[in-house]
């Protein structure tokens, strides 16, 4: 009784999506945020090498764009908003690699710890600098993954189409292999952590797109507000990460 009384008295803005407000205010703000983040990424890529360099920054932004677009295309990205959602997850949960470090990754002698410098621990400081904290996965990325996969299975029956997709299991197996490799080949720790984070974010993003198809009883506008709130919080987390690094 109490709940139905309460549900009848909800303010209008929670039940009617103000599309005009979205189009004129929120969408430009949303895009502005992304422009800001791209700038921050460029600054960060440049800054990794010691000082700000525009060319490095542009290269970094290009690589960032290629990687994210490629993953979205693999994910059969249906719209620009899908891509935006993925970008928000990516920025918040994936540790960033510097361009300088990515160049080093092309050197396999370095990756597989065959280089003398590495054996003499010359590079250990650099590796420590770029190694994402393990706690990052356990503290937030894996819990988000569990919650979103759990939600995806919420209304599922035993139908084949509602089971957890096989590709998730394959990707999680790759994650497990990467984690084992990280233990034995400390030289690849940065690349492996980056790959683990990208894979987990891909699954979160893909599962979230399917959660959006669940039948819901609340007004769409209210649910959209809740999602916007969630994405704003995740976005703020991503921006704070960039500032902290």
């Amino acid at each position: 009784m109490w709940e139905s009384r309460f549900r009848d008295k909800r303010p209008k803005f929670l039940t009617q999506l103000p599309t005009e407000y979205f189009a004129k205010v929120l969408a430009p703000l949303y895009l502005l945020f992304f422009v800001t983040v791209y700038c921050l990424k460029m600054w960060q890529f440049g800054n990794d090498t010691g000082s700000f360099q525009l060319v490095e920054g542009l290269w970094g932004a290009t690589i960032f764009e290629i990687v994210t677009m490629a993953i979205c295309l693999i994910n059969k990205c249906r719209s620009v908003t899908n891509y935006f959602r993925f970008l928000i997850f990516y920025l918040a949960f994936v540790p960033h690699l510097s361009l300088a470090y990515m160049e080093k990754l092309l050197d396999f002698s370095y990756i597989f710890a065959m280089r003398e410098d590495f054996v003499n621990h010359k590079w250990s400081g650099l590796i420590a600098l770029w190694t994402a904290d393990w706690s990052h996965y356990l503290q937030i990325l894996i819990p988000v993954l569990i919650l979103v996969i759990g939600a995806r299975q919420m209304n599922s029956s035993n139908d084949r189409e509602h089971r957890i997709p096989v590709r998730y299991f394959v990707l999680l197996a790759i994650v497990a292999v990467l984690l084992v490799l990280m233990i034995f080949f400390s030289g690849i720790i940065n690349l492996a952590q980056y790959a683990v984070a990208v894979i987990l974010v891909y699954i979160v993003s893909d599962a979230w797109d399917q959660v959006r198809d669940l039948p819901s009883f609340e007004p769409v506008a209210l649910i959209s507000w809740a999602e916007i709130l969630m994405f704003v919080a995740i976005f703020c987390k991503g921006v704070m990460e960039i500032f902290e690094r």
Binding site: I223, L229, M230
Partner: peptide, 19 residues
């Protein structure tokens, strides 16, 4: 504070999405 806040908001979005 972000991990705790983000997880709470993710749960709100999921609960509403799930009906």
């Amino acid at each position: 504070i972000f991990p705790a806040v983000v997880l709470s908001l993710v749960m709100i979005a999921i609960l509403l999405r799930a009906g």
